[in-house]
Nucleic acid binder design. Sequence first.
DNA 1: TGTGTATATACGTGTCAACGAATATATTGG
DNA 2: CCAATATATTCGTTGACACGTATATACACA
Lengths: 105, 105
Amino acid sequence: MQLTLSTISEPNRFNIIELLKQGPRSVSDLVELLNIGQPQVSRHLRILNEAGLVKVRKNAQQRIYSLEARPFQELDEWLDSFSRLWEERLDNFEDYMSDLNGKES
Amino acid sequence: MQLTLSTISEPNRFNIIELLKQGPRSVSDLVELLNIGQPQVSRHLRILNEAGLVKVRKNAQQRIYSLEARPFQELDEWLDSFSRLWEERLDNFEDYMSDLNGKES
DNA sequence: TGTGTATATACGTGTCAACGAATATATTGG
DNA sequence: CCAATATATTCGTTGACACGTATATACACA
């Protein structure tokens, strides 16, 4: 979970993920679409792969990268545990805590 | 979005968020529950606050921190854009791309 | 097999952020 | 105002990581 988060939080990897969301891409495709050099793209792809966020497929000399669904599903499930933050009436809960602790600011 | 991600990805801040998910907490509460010093807790809380992930309320000398819903909602909405990854049949899409690019591995 | 294309790795450098320790600021009650 | 409690900030150090350049590996086709 935290590996997923820290991996995605790097801006270039975030951009790579946004591109792969539209479909599989080769490394050279990504190099053209991003403004960074090929070694950097390969390196970020390796990190994404090690974090389980992408998978690779060979096509001649090309490597076709695509997104792996599971980690994003897990992130989504983790966020479900926050649902009470907005789906239930948070205000009432906060007022309750205020009363417990004394007056407000 | 990326500020949210990088902020959450730090392990101590992730733990703080998990605790705040259960309800508002004072700094000293968090210091007891986590295994890090008070200055570190305060520092992480400041970073969480600057990222808009928590809000503060004063109660005497205490500062009561609680989660802010919006960034988590935004994260959830961002993940919605990945829904096709698992809700629709990805396999067909991949086969389609394979045909476009030539033969498979 | 050798050459070109596609991708990956190695290396040195610079930056950024987390940490612990020490100290500063706020807030309350006496 | 003073002392005590609660929280915040500063400082110096250190480790992790992203970058660019250079080089290595994989694969296909002539």
